[in-house]
Write a protein that binds this DNA or RNA. Structure first.
Lengths: 145, 145
DNA sequence: GATTGTTAGTTACAAAATCAACCATTACAG
DNA sequence: CTGTAATGGTTGATTTTGTAACTAACAATC
């Protein structure tokens, strides 16, 4: 099984990024899944509300680049579990302002702590300069041009 | 929508990696999807065979860290399209040795060229030192520890 | 050489993501 | 105003993925 070809999958950036993203998500996923039965879309919505406070589904969608149907279903589930509440916007009655309930904030605080420690553990094998540069580059790569 | 919280999703590595992976895959996905009607698993299998020559499904799976059912289905589709052929292994008749057909090699050569150019376009905004360091770090992050 | 355990790969069923169509409301053009 | 387009969000149908259970072949033990 030697390499027979000049091309190397292991340096193809989209592939590498995908592998790194998947591997580095596993242990965190394990936590939000087993501890709260959440899906990826769900913790993302939760975090957006935890971090930014009140937002609409569309705002979350454009910030997280998630499709609106994903968000709609995640919001529904979080609401069912009483982690999130919706209030119809008075000025634009199509929109609803989403925010966390007290219970939601507790869950968020817990997961936020897990995330912070997990992130620290992921990055502690690199110098802080390297990590900073890595984050910069990833942010640039995440931005559509 | 100011930040109300000390934590920032935009520096959480698994999130960042995911965003970068997704964004940086879009345009390439567009090509293999529209040009050959392929799925991500399918081009991955195709590339593995294109790069490494003959392999078994299990070998591809462990190298790409893809579940065997995904591979089984991708192999099936590639075979249906006559891009891949299977030969039962004589020494171990459970296994099958997979390889590309001539048609498969043509498709691979085309996509490989697209990938190389695409990768160049993704990385041309960074210094080559930075890109090298980025690849190193991503490879480390992709490896289970 | 039977028994038990493992490995390669497939298949059936459940969970989730995608896509298109949809309703309600708002924005905008004439 | 009125008709048409655009926006916020939901729903249903289809596709894709994930999980478990399965068959067939091999390996190891007794």
């Amino acid at each position: 099984m030697d390499q027979k070809d000049g091309f190397d999958l292991q340096i193809f950036l989209p592939y590498l990024l995908n592998q790194a993203a998947e591997e580095s998500s596993i242990a965190f996923q394990e936590v939000y899944k087993s501890r709260y039965g959440m899906l990826r879309t769900e913790w993302r919505v939760l975090f957006h509300l935890g971090i930014y406070g009140e937002m609409t589904a569309t705002e979350i969608g454009s910030r997280a680049r998630m499709h609106k149907t994903k968000i709609s279903r995640a919001v529904q589930k979080l609401e069912d579990r009483r982690l999130l509440k919706r209030v119809r916007d008075a000025k634009d009655r199509r929109a609803e302002r989403l925010s966390l309930t007290d219970a939601g904030r507790v869950v968020y605080a817990d997961l936020r702590e897990v995330a912070a420690q997990y992130d620290a553990r992921l990055t502690d094998r690199f110098s802080s300069d390297d990590v900073a540069r890595l984050r910069d580059m990833l942010l640039i790569l995440s931005t559509p041009r």
